[in-house]
Simulated scan of single mutants.
Amino acid sequence: MKIVRTIQALREERGKMEGSVGFVPTMGALHAGHLSLIRRAREENDHVVVSVFVNPTQFLPGEDLEKYPRREEADRLICEKAGVDLLFMPDASAIYHEDEVTLKAPAYLGYILEGHRRPGHFDGVVQVVMKLFGLVQPDFAYFGKKDAQQLRILQKMAEDFFLPVTIVPMETVREEDGLALSSRNVYLSPEERRRALSISKALKRASKMVMAGERSAEAIEAEMREVMRGIDVEYVAIVDRDFRPQERVELKKSIILVAARVGATRLIDNIWL
């Protein structure tokens, strides 16, 4: 595995690659969820590129940019064992410049739910992913469904800019107790982690309700909020695949999303029905 930190070195190594390239962009602190993306990329491509870059433009003032977990050596070992060919670990100075051209998230998708709670967050996401796509020039890029709104925005970005990359959605990976894997889980105390389990429990309850024939979004949301009474729920949303609100759940068309704070830690999760 090659490790590169500069744009020039990345371009040189990318130029040597023949055949398909699978790309997994990350912010590091890699866990089993990231590993599932890397393994899928390894199965489906001749070459695999992973980036580790804590992107400052997607953090709002007061968010956890400075304390976001950074585990460079552990990330390197995980990538090496997973068969990654090229690991890109740049500094922000290599990625961003003064007075640069910027992208904006779409007017609707970028400003509801996560975009409403974290204004400007998705602008930073599309900016950095467009840059990384331009550098890596992947054939396939792998993203988890846990960040469902981000996934849809990046799919739309690829569609709208006619990018020659296929966005591959991947299922959320969970701990045995149901907690969705996240780099931010390390912030949770044992007691907070126990309370955080109510998020996945609420989603599981919603799924059971739907399977039993319940279709009312209002009834499902009310039951989910009851399950999550012990934590600070920011939103429960039931939407279609384009994130339009639904009054009635539709199988194979709906997503149920949750955002909540457990102590000082903000967590998101969802199920795709």
Rank of each mutant, 00 (worst) to 15 (best):
L151Q: 10
K67N: 13
S183F: 09
V239A: 06
H116N: 10
I7F: 06
K204E: 11
V128N: 04
A222F: 10
Q137K: 13
Q149R: 11
D160A: 14
T102A: 10
T172A: 00
Y142E: 01
S254M: 02
A237L: 00
G33F: 04
A74V: 14
N45A: 03
L87Q: 01
D91A: 09
I256G: 01
E18H: 15
Q155K: 13
K201P: 00
V239P: 07
M209N: 02
R215L: 07
E159F: 08
K146E: 12
F140M: 12
A222Y: 11
E114S: 10
D91N: 03
G134Y: 05
A92C: 11
A41M: 11
E192S: 07
A29M: 11
F243E: 11
V21E: 01
V84N: 01
M130E: 12
P245I: 12
R248M: 08
E72S: 14
G263H: 02
K208R: 15
I112V: 14
R244C: 14
S36T: 06
R193K: 12
A92K: 12
Q150G: 02
L86A: 10
I199C: 04
G110L: 11
T172I: 02
R261I: 03
Y142A: 00
M224F: 08
A206P: 01
G110R: 07
F122H: 03
F143T: 03
Q58T: 03
T102Y: 05
A180L: 06
Q137I: 03
S207Q: 15
M170P: 07
E73S: 09
L267W: 03
H97C: 14
L251R: 09
D123E: 05
T26W: 10
L135D: 04
P56G: 10
V84R: 01
Y68N: 09
D75I: 07
L103I: 08
W272R: 15
E18G: 15
H34Q: 07
L37A: 09
E247M: 10
L65M: 12
